[in-house]
Design a protein around this nucleic acid. Sequence first.
DNA 1: ATGCCTGCAAAGCTTTTGCAGATGC
DNA 2: GCATCTGCAAAAGCTTTGCAGGCAT
Lengths: 155, 155
Amino acid sequence: MQSNDLRKAGLKVTTPRVKILDILAGSEGRHLSAEDIYRQLLEHAEDIGLATVYRVLTQFEAAGLVERHHFEGGTAVFELNQGEHHDHIVCMDCGRVEEFMDCGIEERQLDVAKRLGFDIAEHNLILYGHCKKPNCPNRPAVKRGPRDQEPGAGT
Amino acid sequence: MQSNDLRKAGLKVTTPRVKILDILAGSEGRHLSAEDIYRQLLEHAEDIGLATVYRVLTQFEAAGLVERHHFEGGTAVFELNQGEHHDHIVCMDCGRVEEFMDCGIEERQLDVAKRLGFDIAEHNLILYGHCKKPNCPNRPAVKRGPRDQEPGAGT
DNA sequence: ATGCCTGCAAAGCTTTTGCAGATGC
DNA sequence: GCATCTGCAAAAGCTTTGCAGGCAT
């Protein structure tokens, strides 16, 4: 029942919002771009505009329901806020994204911030590498540099 | 003598490239956007197009002469590659960017990657916080969320 | 002289915004 | 019924690209 989350966020319960929340919840663990979500909506024969997707995602972010990430590639991706903080590691071959949490890293970040005289508010850590999974095609999917992204990386 | 760096990178020594390298070298420690550089070129009465700035920066990045960073805000910033790796901490009030290196964090990143079965190729760590410097105006300069950036943050 | 470079302008991509109509409460 | 929300289309912002002329070697 996602409707309650919406209500709690002070947002009216509308079709676009519920559907988008559904899609995000159904892709738990994956990280979807606005376009990804828009495409899924179209597949579900929902008549929802891309602009609305962006608007809704922005509202969700403001409400703390989702997090926005900027992995390399110029496109933002969104994931449902699972309550507990984590960082990301991205496979540069297949685009797979895994999440992790390392207390040691977190602590040392605070140390560094203190050392430099900063009050740390948040942070952004992304590791880029090559996963050695057998089903990982060794062709670039996430790549640094000028926009360069494969559309169908995670069907 | 930056010309040698250019030659070594297989790039012809041209006015735009040298000037841009000069500007980057003259702003050591600062992080300039393409527009920042373009503006400085105009101030120096150099007749160089913004497109060229982008092209040159992209070439420099490919050649390993500069690094491109995406701090929050939708605009990329560039800094001269100083040879040794470091991460960044950004003040959300005044936009100041400081650099740091923490071996502990680096090590633990490798640990995490190994634990998850990744060969780590690179990473991206940015801490966001509030520097408590006396001359730090407590007004937002770098802010998360929808594009929202003050133009004149670092004359 | 030749081939890499540049400036200009136009296009491209993601994201945002304005407005009139639609919908939730 | 009223305020909020949505769809469409157009705009905005950053970045890239095409092309004809210019410059380094």
